[in-house]
Amino acid sequence: MYSLLSTQNLSASFGSTQVLKNIQMDFDEFTVSAIIGPSGCGKSTFIRCLNRLHEEVAEASATGKVLLQGHDIYASDVDPVAIRRKIGMVFQKPNPFPSLSIFDNVAIGLKLAGVRRGAILRETVERSLKLAALWEEVKDKLNSQGTSLSGGQQQRLCIARALAVEPSVLLMDEPTSALDPISTAKIEELMTELKKTVTIVIVTHNMQQAARISDKTAFFLLGEMIEYGETSELFTAPKDQRTERYITGRFG
């Protein structure tokens, strides 16, 4: 197995405050990697660097390399827009497009890309909604507003939306923190299913979640990556004292 996505010396800052320092990480294809750490440790910023969303914030900047299949996505001739089609993202709060129907919310990525054929759109929407385990619940009301769904359904809709453009990586920024336990369980279940087709990087503040769903886990603290390894190892035999203190609940 080679690394689908990796970072080299990735640093990021807002204005003059540095929030990430020299991060080196590799993400293997068809795995789930979790990033844990206390709030303010830079874990969100980190995954936002992976699809170059970080730079959309005023005064934000990033240096270093992020390699997707060996190509640096921060190279000067690379268009961030193209990158974001290969690396999808799901946000903390469900954010379906308010004025679009459920169908259009999923189809929008393809429509933007110029796909007009109804058959392709329908097929993709169905497949993505099925992947996101939402199809059975919405197949009879594809034309109602995306915002009419419940919170958990909305989040799965956002996952379907991201999957529709067939990204090779899916970034998830605390995707269940705004959801109830039942919806959370559904999405966790979904992730183990999804990793057969897509590589997932998830930020979570919930250590149990990381332990349940991920193959590898990284621990971030104050903008640095402290430890990164197999999830089972990191949680049972952490190498770094700070990791140990965090997972045993002695800080933050």
Binding site: N51, G88, F91, Q92, K93, N95, F97, G109, L112
Partner: peptide, 15 residues
Amino acid sequence: IPRVQREAALALGST
């Protein structure tokens, strides 16, 4: 309009 609305579009690869 909240920023996440815009990021949702950007993250999908829209210009």
